[in-house]
């Protein structure tokens, strides 16, 4: 009772990275609160899934295994999740901010009348005092996220309703096996107890899941372009530099919206979060919407015509100049100096 639950997404028998990242964070929060970390796995043919989850610190693994539960559909997963939460009364429930988690999370929060904060970039335990009533609350989950197009950072709490629910995007939290694996004690869920016929009303007609081709998240070096790159044509220079340096190309939301690069390359609050060894920001002004997705890069180089661009505050090296001029010089200098 009153533990932390992580809803675990299963893709082809394996747990999704985002869920393992949430377990890693959940383990840390559970240790702070002195409660258990429980994993909820809903799908079909889930044999052995508990072992994977225990490695990331799950004390308990709730398993709902039924052919109606895979592939994911909103209503049956909502019914099972709500059923378990109503019985177990978790204090915190975490979901990936994926197309699945953002479909399921709000449905569950609406059914349980509990608050849900989307796309948190940080989760911390802390105390809270209501400004109006003066009521004090201990050990709430601070759900921290950018809002208003990323111009503000809001800390949200759910003082009275449980579970305190949050979604987190893939790559935002670190993924790390627990120092001491959890027990991974299995609890089988009696699926038929929770599923009604009406939960099966939506049928999947067809499904094409593409292999993940592009993975800028895993890249050690990212050459990223913003609206300031100017055109899709100019973006080619970034690809050239990325290739020479052995990196990938990223882009800001403005560049993606302008059609300079595809969405899979978007770095930032509504794209992916990256933490490469080197991030080269070309023609990126540095709106928080973007920097939220790259400010943990080990090293940041900025190339911008405006020496006052906000990105420069974050940069280890700020080059003032036109990227069309600077990038070729970087390529030449790298070729001349690398062994």
């Amino acid at each position: 009772m009153n533990n932390i639950f992580v809803y675990c997404e299963i893709e082809g028998g394996a747990v999704a990275d985002v869920s393992l990242e949430l377990l890693t964070k959940g383990r840390e929060l559970a240790d702070t609160l002195g409660c258990k970390l429980e994993a909820l796995a809903i799908g079909h043919n889930l044999n052995g899934i508990d072992k994977q989850l225990a490695l990331y610190g799950a004390d308990t693994v709730w398993i709902a295994d039924d052919r109606e539960l895979a592939p994911y559909r909103t209503l049956p997963h909502t019914a099972v999740t709500c059923g378990v939460f109503e019985a177990e009364k978790p204090q915190i429930a975490l979901f990936g901010a994926t197309s699945l988690g953002r479909d399921l999370g709000p449905r569950v929060s609406s059914a349980l009348h509990s608050g849900l904060t989307a796309d948190c970039t940080s989760l911390v335990i802390g105390d809270h005092q209501d400004a109006r009533t003066g009521t004090k609350y201990e050990n709430l989950l601070y759900q921290i996220r950018p809002a208003f197009g990323g111009n503000i950072i809001a800390t949200i709490v759910n003082p009275d309703c449980r579970p305190q629910m949050a979604t987190v995007r893939e790559g935002v939290m670190k993924k790390e096996q627990a120092a001491k694996p959890g027990k991974g004690e299995v609890r089988q869920i009696d699926v038929r107890k929770y599923l009604k016929d009406t939960d099966l009303a939506v049928k999947i007609v067809s499904r094409q899941i593409e292999e993940r081709k592009l993975n800028i998240k895993g890249a050690q070096i990212i050459v990223s372009g913003g609206y300031g790159v100017g055109s899709k044509e100019n973006f080619k220079l970034l690809y050239e530099l990325a290739e020479v340096l052995g990196g990938e190309v990223g882009a800001s939301r403005a560049a993606v919206d302008a059609g300079f690069a595809e969405h899979a390359r978007q770095v930032g609050q509504t794209g992916v979060t990256v933490r490469p060894k080197l991030y080269i920001a070309c023609g990126i002004s540095g709106q928080i919407q973007h920097t939220a997705g790259m400010d943990q890069s080990a090293m940041v180089v900025s190339i911008n015509t405006d020496p006052e661009a906000p990105i420069n505050k974050l940069a280890d090296y700020a080059v003032t100049g036109d990227l069309l001029d600077v990038i070729p010089k970087m390529i030449n200098a790298y070729k001349a100096n690398s062994k």
């Binding site: 608050g115 949200i156 505050k313 010089k329």
Partner: peptide, 30 residues
Amino acid sequence: PTKVKQIENVVLQAKESKQYSASEGEINSL
């Protein structure tokens, strides 16, 4: 159920950044 506890305006934290011009020599040393 959700309450806004705190709103923080975004001010990028300044850190020491080295400034370079676009000259060939400076790009080379970078």
